[in-house]
Design a protein around this nucleic acid. Sequence first.
DNA 1: CCTACTATTGCATACGTTTGCATTGATTGT
DNA 2: ACAATCAATGCAAACGTATGCAATAGTAGG
Lengths: 368, 368
Amino acid sequence: MRVNTALRRGSAFTGFAMMWGMRAPNRPKPPSRVTIRDVAVRARVDISTVSRALNPDARHLISDEVVVRVMEASKALGYRKNKVASALTRGRSQVIGVILPDIENSVFPPMVRGIEERLAVSGYAVLIANAAGAAADRERVLEQMFERQVDGVVVATASRDDQMIRRCILENIPVVLVNRSEEHRHAPEVVNDDFHSMQLAVAHLVGLGHRKIAHLAGPLHLSTGFARWQGFQMAAQSHRVAAGHMVEATEFTRQAGLIACTELLKRYRSSTAIVASNDLIALGCYDALAAAGLRCPHDISVVGHNDIPLVDMINPPLTTLRIQHREMGRQAAQLLLERLASPEAKPVRVTLAPELMIRSSTAPPRSG
Amino acid sequence: MRVNTALRRGSAFTGFAMMWGMRAPNRPKPPSRVTIRDVAVRARVDISTVSRALNPDARHLISDEVVVRVMEASKALGYRKNKVASALTRGRSQVIGVILPDIENSVFPPMVRGIEERLAVSGYAVLIANAAGAAADRERVLEQMFERQVDGVVVATASRDDQMIRRCILENIPVVLVNRSEEHRHAPEVVNDDFHSMQLAVAHLVGLGHRKIAHLAGPLHLSTGFARWQGFQMAAQSHRVAAGHMVEATEFTRQAGLIACTELLKRYRSSTAIVASNDLIALGCYDALAAAGLRCPHDISVVGHNDIPLVDMINPPLTTLRIQHREMGRQAAQLLLERLASPEAKPVRVTLAPELMIRSSTAPPRSG
DNA sequence: CCTACTATTGCATACGTTTGCATTGATTGT
DNA sequence: ACAATCAATGCAAACGTATGCAATAGTAGG
């Protein structure tokens, strides 16, 4: 029921707006920022002395007396360091880029939070970019980041064989992968232990008595989709359960889940449980089951993956694997910082353990 | 059921990692980036000519022949502009800062997306920061942004009377508010039309037959909480329904909603419907109702606000007001760009229309 | 053919900071 | 008391780009 999409636009009280307004017609920054030089004259020292006095790492070179004089002058004038000038001379911007497929996908915000959290304490800022589109699109985004002289990049968009990673390596700029991994292991990465995830999911279902378990895979060209499928196969085999019942969804979306699940129901109609590659796909299952007149968990059990917000409140509450999104971000940032410190070190892989959240979308199979 | 939170860490194949590794022990950037100067010598022109030839706005000063020569040289050498150097000379970084309360709150990712989307096409990059904490914390974040010489700031954290906004005005750096607004109207802002929201919500409930409607407000020191309360009062009055039944939740969270709703049920026990200030608070209502042995919508109807993901799938599907998060972000970016172009213009307020999503958490009141 | 343009290019400085090296006193060892 | 050392500071050259101004050459007008 769309009520009104129009948009109103009215002017508002100006007030302050005129404060600087009545000067030269085109002065960009009227209170032309105070520089290190201004501080220098006020403290009666050379600018180099100011620079050192203000830099914790070089402060020891300056006498205490002068340091306080500089500090006072700095405070009095309201001096603020210009980090882009600093970046230019030092060759390090203290900025790192974060490349996401789509920040609206709820797995990423917690990661971004974790990344930012860890980087902030080390004085780094975060440049963010969504690279939803094609490969060329992502190249462009990466190029933008390079132009901005980022000191490093966190990539959450990696495909199993990723061009961006190669670029970063070639350009010699530190990169770490998060969430998704890359086959060649050229870069450090922090990922969920998807094998463990599938082990937990299958064990849980087998424990409930299921013997015909199918897998609704995510795109297999993405490491997450691929690893979970592999993990499912291994887990199924170790539990002596058919491992081949799989349909691949084209995307990690509810819509793709619906389509794939419909196909799955047709192809493997004896299945009593479905392990979906992520929660959105699992929700697509709900839709497909409803459309087929099947009830969850009564007719078919469903397990999701990721434990995104609110899946505990839907009907039925989804059994799923919680993964440590925020911690993943933190670790990724940590790895990147380590890499910045010692670029020659071997790329490391950090694996985070998932946690099975048992809710109501799984139950023993119908006895019939 | 926590299974395992341990973290495994193994080394991985190094491969490429050694490619640049066997050189001088501490060379930061071995393939020392190609600069405008390198391009100049190859094209046999001055660096100033290269600069102009590569800058679309100055290109007309250079002969076509030389332009192509420069382009070729640039391409051949793999030249890439150093935007931090550029930022230093031009005094504009082409970066804008976005300050959020918490990116994990699902209303913000779409906004960020909209902001980034619009800014990207104009060549701006987005520096992001979460400023969840206290006022001092947010000041620090803002300071960081200033040090990084952002050309403008988008603030999503504004309180009704905000210190950050004043700082921005004083420092003469363009700022626009998004989602939340500020009383003094010193800055342009783009917000949802919360009055309209409440009008729609109340009209809907009254149409269903409700006469005792209560409001579960968000924090009143935030513009959203405040405006929705005001809007509720006006809407209630215009429908000749008691306007004073209100309890304020301390936060926009499910937990705060639970607490506030419990209080509300005690204080206004005859209410047949609740309009919550946002969806999370509405979910808190669900909890409180369940705890009180009441069913929604049978005993009490609930209306949310924001239409965050998955509230259409919970039980019962939540009637709520959809707001145009992404568009809000776009408009905010647009306003900021306009402000950058003409800083003297009067601050404008853009209001976006909400849309009532009628689902199953609202129904006619029990006849009893 | 000379002058006044215009179009194209180069020269040199600036942006604000960092940092290697030189300089200045002061202090220590012999 | 003199050399050697050391601590504290200043000097000046970067970093890579943008841009005002000067210089050059070519062109048109008279």
